[in-house]
């Protein structure tokens, strides 16, 4: 079996938001909609204060609450663990958005562009009517991942078939790959480091791991 997951090494992330920008560029999300973002958190009180940068987005949960509640079957889950949305089935009811404990789902009820109603040429070229008034979220760049088989490439190893946020990371903090493959980089990272997953107690089995210390 294959289970694609993301691993973020919090020790390395510097909060530069390059992954955020890369995601925006690759997926042409409208203003206010950010499938990948990096939280900037402060911990402690003066003088012992630390900053922590935390990449977040759809966790591609093993037990996705969004899929359970979806009344239309628009939200689905593939055998490789990727949680998908069929934009043609979705009615934009927002139930998945209130069911997601990671605030990863977005609904833009009307077409929106960077400078108001007037779209720039690149926005016109990449505008997708199917994504208006329906739920959208990070896809783990499924279009890129799906090119792996036909080209004999490995997601997480070969850039052409790896999510753009991972490719763009300047600090080597983001990693992607098959958790069920013991030889993959993500498997090694998980085996050799102390990790956690966010809101794990909610039983969602998230596919996004955070490295916080060495074993």
């Amino acid at each position: 079996m294959t289970r694609y997951v993301m691993v973020a090494d919090l020790r390395r992330c510097v909060g530069c938001q390059t992954c955020t920008a890369a995601c925006k560029g690759a997926n042409a999300t409208p203003p206010g909609v950010q499938w990948r973002q990096v939280l900037d958190m402060e911990v402690g009180t003066f003088p012992d204060v630390r900053r922590v940068f935390v990449p977040v987005g759809c966790m591609h949960c093993g037990e996705p609450p969004c899929m359970e509640v979806c009344p239309t079957t628009a939200t689905g889950q593939r055998d490789d663990g990727l949680v998908t949305i069929d934009y043609d089935l979705c009615i934009g009811c927002g139930y998945c958005a209130v069911a997601c404990p990671y605030q990863a789902r977005h609904i833009s009820h009307r077409a929106a562009f960077a400078y108001g109603d007037q779209a720039m040429a690149p926005e016109v070229a990449r505008f997708d009517e199917a994504r208006v008034a329906v739920a959208t979220k990070c896809t783990f760049c499924v279009d890129r991942v799906d090119k792996a088989k036909e080209n004999g490439l490995v997601p997480g190893v070969d850039q052409e078939v790896t999510p753009v946020c991972v490719n763009s990371c300047i600090a080597g903090a983001l990693h992607f790959g098959d958790r069920d493959d013991p030889d993959s980089a993500v498997s090694s990272l998980l085996a050799e480091n102390a990790t956690f997953r966010m809101h794990e107690d909610l039983g969602t089995d998230p596919g996004f791991h955070y490295v916080w210390d060495s074993e």
Binding site: M67, E68, V69, C70, P71, T72, T73, A74, L89, C90, I91, G92, C93, G94, Y95, I107, H109, V132, A133, V134
Partner: peptide, 20 residues
């Protein structure tokens, strides 16, 4: 409230787990 009201009939498609 729903984004795509003309597709409202799709709401009947997931009785297995969806309370909606």
């Amino acid at each position: 409230e729903i984004g795509r009201p003309l597709r409202a009939m799709n709401v009947f498609l997931h009785p297995r787990t969806s309370w909606m």
